[in-house]
Each structure stands twice: as structure tokens, then as C-alpha cells.
């Protein structure tokens, strides 16, 4: 029920903010489309803890800030490598352990890896992520486990 309400609130907010016209006719169109999307989402079984992680909401801003600083740093690294030329890179791929309480944690971890340039999560098998990195340093950084700790602190 909580997740149904959360989905309704989000959809209604997006409609209201995007439309900018507040007449009776358009508002009723909005209500109809929100309800239609909710019926479809319910049929597909999408309304659950995994698609609406409202329980993470209070800890998300801190994680996003950390991820943002991480993205800025790795962007600068990759740009330096671009201008130095192909001689400065050392592409590697390896399996990195990813032990989390839930699938949601794994998804967050893999998406964070992909979002930071220089590392891409290619595949998940069990408790391991196959990662391709632009430089050996980037892979070592990931092995250091800072990101894993942050994600684990988020989902706890």
C-alpha cells in the first residue's frame, strides 16, 4: 500500500510539474493517465520494495554526494588519459566481489561502477561483478572497497 501511494505521489507530481496548465479537463486527463500507468505497473508486478526504495530515501542524499565527487574525480582521470593518448591506458578486466544483503544493493553497486567513467560493470554472476577498467589503477581503487562500503552503508 505504501508503495502504491508513493508511486501515485511521484506520478502525480511529475504530471503537475510538467503540464503547467491547471484546468479541470487537463487535470482529469492527468488523473486518468496516472491511474492507467498504475494499473499497468500492478499487472507487471512492479509495485514493490525493489522498484520504489522509499526506505532508502533518508540516506540517499549523502550517497549521491559521495558518488558525485567520485564521478568528478574519475572524469578528470579519464580526460587526462585521453589527451595523453592510447599509450597511457592499460585496459584490464576482472571479477570484483560484491556481497550485499539484497539484489537492490548489487544493482546500486553495479550502476555506480558503470556511472563512474573508467570502470564499467559488464556482468553479474552470483556475488561477483565482472568489471572492465580503463587503467589498472581504476581497478585497484575498486578492489580497495570504498564504493562497496558506501553502498552497504546505504542499504543497511
Amino acid at each position: 500500500m505504501r508503495y502504491t501511494l508513493a508511486l501515485f505521489a511521484i506520478l502525480a507530481f511529475v504530471w503537475l510539474a510538467n503540464s503547467g496548465h491547471y484546468t479541470g479537463l487537463l487535470l482529469s486527463f492527468g488523473l486518468v493517465s496516472v491511474l492507467l500507468v498504475m494499473v499497468i505497473a500492478r499487472r507487471m508486478g512492479l509495485i514493490d520494495q525493489e522498484s520504489q526504495p522509499v526506505h532508502l530515501l533518508s540516506r540517499l542524499p549523502r550517497y549521491y554526494w559521495w558518488l558525485f565527487t567520485k564521478i568528478v574525480r574519475s572524469n578528470i582521470d579519464v580526460v587526462i588519459n585521453v589527451w595523453r593518448g592510447p599509450a597511457s591506458i592499460s585496459p584490464v578486466s576482472a571479477r570484483i566481489p560484491a556481497r550485499f544483503h539484497s539484489d537492490l544493493g548489487k544493482v546500486l553497486y553495479a550502476n555506480s561502477i558503470t556511472l563512474t567513467p573508467g570502470t564499467v560493470a559488464v556482468d553479474i554472476e552470483g556475488d561477483e561483478v565482472l568489471v572492465h577498467a580503463l587503467t589498472a589503477g581504476g581497478l585497484e581503487d575498486l578492489r580497495g572497497g570504498e564504493m562497496e562500503r558506501e553502498v552497504r552503508a546505504l542499504e543497511k
Binding site: I71, V72, N75, V78, V79, V82, T116, P117, G118, V120
Partner: peptide, 10 residues
């Protein structure tokens, strides 16, 4: 793909 990541994010 890593280079494309730079244009897509920052």
C-alpha cells in the same frame, strides 16, 4: 565506452 562515459556524465 569509458570515453563515451565522460561525455554522458560530467
Amino acid at each position: 565506452m569509458h570515453a563515451a562515459g565522460v561525455t554522458d556524465t560530467l
